[in-house]
Design a protein around this nucleic acid. Sequence first.
DNA 1: TCCTTATCTTGACTGATTCCAGAAAATGCA
DNA 2: TGCATTTTCTGGAATCAGTCAAGATAAGGA
Lengths: 143, 143
Amino acid sequence: MATASDFRQRLRGAALRVTRPRVAVLEAVHAHPHADTDTIIGAVRGELPKVSHQAVYNSLRALTDAGLVRRIQPAGFVARYESRVGDNHHHVVCRACGSIADADCAVGEAPCLTASDDRGFTIDEAEVVYWGLCPACSAPESA
Amino acid sequence: MATASDFRQRLRGAALRVTRPRVAVLEAVHAHPHADTDTIIGAVRGELPKVSHQAVYNSLRALTDAGLVRRIQPAGFVARYESRVGDNHHHVVCRACGSIADADCAVGEAPCLTASDDRGFTIDEAEVVYWGLCPACSAPESA
DNA sequence: TCCTTATCTTGACTGATTCCAGAAAATGCA
DNA sequence: TGCATTTTCTGGAATCAGTCAAGATAAGGA
């Protein structure tokens, strides 16, 4: 498990200033995979009660731009964040409750990265979202 | 090209009441592929100036639920609508200007439809978004 | 034509995210 | 270590897509 000083190092490595809010946000994203901004704000305030929501938004933006966290935003849901970066894995999203699980594509390393016709676009990423129902939501009424 | 009576038939076929706003919305979606709600409101009002934005939102929801139009919502952009339905084709999205083009996946008919590990989810759709830059945005400053 | 029910109009409202200006803190250098 | 510079944070207002709600209107079937 990563420590606070690990996170500080990562921030420095990305040429970002090391601030308390940023370290706490990085910790929160690691501790709560696929959490939305509100959850992260809550987690951060568990440690730094006075952090403004704006600081969390700023930090998430900075961390995302630096590639230290990854933003996910399935259609119809608010933005989520995860700490697993650099491998372009994909996600399974529950239509009912919005829960997210990681998934690796069945087809090789860079799945579907080439569209049959790219329409002249310069493509740098293929994002795949699997839509369905999570185990809990696909089960009948019972627990 | 589809006529107004074609659209009326499609609405009836989907067990939806045929109303002026719905016909106009269906026309607008066909005439403006990948348009956002605001654009559609504008197009609809070109024909029916008094239509409320709520009626357009209601219609788009009804048409989407009925499968007559498809909603697209790339991360960070507002919802768009298109009339090409039933083939689960994919999209190329420009990071800079948000423009969208259709794309068929290189890998067979149901690309990447099976994740290597579905985590117990019941998956019914694999959505693929190719991110990059459109020809206009990837070109240097010149025209 | 009349009745029932769905849809539309109007206008307020929500909730995620952003913008702004002044205060505070982090880094670099003496 | 102490100061200057620059970035970041705080606090609060603002934006914007989309939704909610109640009464008026129109669609479809008897």
